[in-house]
């Protein structure tokens, strides 16, 4: 059977992804997960609420630049932005199930690591090239928890299944998004500087997102 070639950006991510996998696994299997699950949802909300604004910023900047890579990226974002609309609302709905007020997510101050994770993308979008965001999306898109694992988490934590609505929805949707993105990566007319920028963005995303998980796990270990 013929296998599809793996894009160099995916291969760069695979070099460092084990650190992120180890960190997220540490959180999802933590003995105190039931207690800090609301905080985990709030942390995800900090990040997800920035997804559409980040993509809109990248699309607007791409349309200003109008080079071949920027035009292709704007075209991708035209279709992808609607797919990501309201995912932050899914997380707030999960918090509702747990009786946690939405203000807990909306009014708390995100960690410096979260601000670095999202904020570095804004820097690259406005001061380098918006296609940097492709590195961020390639890391974060399409790696949801498997449904069997989520079922096990529900059972282990004894929390309502409906409090994991966002996770289950992503488990169903994200693999298709990932396949779409993998096909698209080959269509970008990248120059070496775009390869380097998306690579740095992706590696940095893995690094900082792993740190977000590591900080949550460390704070719970200390309890």
């Amino acid at each position: 059977m013929e296998t599809s070639p793996i894009h160099p950006l995916r291969r760069k991510i695979s070099l460092v992804r084990p650190r992120l996998q180890a960190a997220s696994y540490r959180v999802w299997t933590h003995p105190r997960l039931r207690d800090f699950y609301p905080q985990l949802l709030i942390t995800f909300h900090w990040m997800i609420r920035a997804s559409v604004p980040l993509m809109e910023a990248a699309r607007a900047r791409s349309l200003e630049l109008r080079d071949p890579v920027a035009i292709r990226f704007a075209y991708y974002l035209d279709t992808h932005i609607p797919e990501e609309q309201n995912h932050d609302e899914w997380l707030l709905a999960d918090l509702d199930v747990l009786g946690i007020p939405r203000t807990a997510a909306l009014n708390t101050t995100p960690s410096p690591t979260m601000a670095s994770l999202v904020g570095s993308q804004y820097y690259w979008i406005f001061h380098t090239h918006p296609v940097a965001l492709l590195g961020y999306i390639a890391v974060l898109e399409g790696n949801p928890a498997p449904i069997e694992f989520l079922n096990e988490v529900v059972q282990r934590t004894e929390l309502p299944r409906s409090a994991f609505g966002s996770m289950f929805k992503h488990a169903a949707l994200d693999l298709q998004h990932r396949n779409d993105l993998d096909d698209l990566l080959w269509e970008f007319p990248f120059e070496p500087e775009h390869d380097a920028l998306t690579g740095v963005s992706a590696i940095t995303t893995v690094n900082l997102f792993a740190r977000v998980f590591e900080e949550i796990a460390a704070s719970q270990d200390a309890v």
Binding site: P18, Q21, F44, N143, P144, H170
Partner: peptide, 14 residues
Amino acid sequence: FIKRNARPSMDYAF
């Protein structure tokens, strides 16, 4: 490193 740390992907985000 990969063998020690490879886990099911669950870095939910997008």
